[in-house]
Write a protein that binds this DNA or RNA. Structure first.
Lengths: 144, 144
DNA sequence: GACGATAGTTGAGCTTGTCAACTATCGCGG
DNA sequence: CCGCGATAGTTGACAAGCTCAACTATCGTC
């Protein structure tokens, strides 16, 4: 039945990664729903999430974080600015750069966004308290 | 310093989920790179991945899997078909539906795609064999 | 003070994605 | 068997994402 010839045994790491990918994929509908709820497109949502209200960054840095072109960020920020969630502020030391400042309203939306997005998926919720703890510890070790 | 007022203690589950999200996000550049390498756009890549060479499905089912509109799938499949990776085949029982068949070339690309995408990220690779095993076991429990 | 490098914007061009309209077909109830 | 609502897929219109190349303004430096 298997067209993929070499169906060799998966290592534990491979299997774990594959399961995490599945978990991730299952969160997609939620992300889409949340973005729409807040009147944001998914990329705008990611952009707002990526910004730190306590630490304004130049646009090029946001571009780097999102792994995309600067020209793309222009449009993204335009959208967020149009809704009063973000402001372009001139940098003092360099008149070329615009610092991205999250407005008060932006902080509010961002916080609510965060709360919903970080809601633990049911699959993880189902685990025993012990499993949840161990899971966290292992992932902490993985990511430093 | 924290603008988010209520910085309450995170539960283990929340922390675990947050770490998994981070891991996921760090895989983004790889996905983009892989898609480009294979001459596919990311959505086309996801579509090809979602198809099962052993089990042709109607387009509407692919749409459901990708959580998008059927009209969107039309374009996606157009792209894949243009590269000879997928074919529309008439269903025997219902002349309205088109079954999506992955071509030989499609299977080849899909397999290579799979191999690269399922490559375990360094963070997980770094873990001890024991941790990897436990991680897999817990995730298995979470996802059945 | 000229010159190469950098930040950001703009415009062209393609892909994604949604919605609404349309065609072809199905299956059912009369 | 006919007609009629439901379904599969396509098409077109339109908004947005994304990249690239060109452009402007500014910076740092020789």
């Amino acid at each position: 039945m298997a067209t993929e010839a070499k169906r060799r045994r998966k290592t534990a790491a491979e299997e774990a990664w594959s399961l995490m990918s599945r978990l991730l994929w299952e969160m997609r509908p939620r992300m889409l729903r949340v973005a729409q709820e807040f009147g944001l497109t998914p990329p705008q949502m990611f952009a707002l999430r990526a910004l730190d209200p306590d630490n304004p960054v130049p646009m090029r840095e946001l571009a780097a974080t999102l792994h995309c072109d600067s020209s793309n960020v222009t449009g993204l920020v335009d959208g967020l600015a149009a809704q009063g969630l973000v402001e372009r502020r001139e940098a003092e030391h360099d008149r070329r750069v615009r610092m991205l400042v999250v407005t008060e309203r932006g902080v509010e939306v961002r916080d609510r966004l965060h709360a919903v997005i970080q809601e633990v998926p049911p699959a993880v919720m189902r685990l025993s308290a012990t499993d949840q703890g161990v899971l966290r510890d292992i992932l902490k070790r993985a990511l430093d």
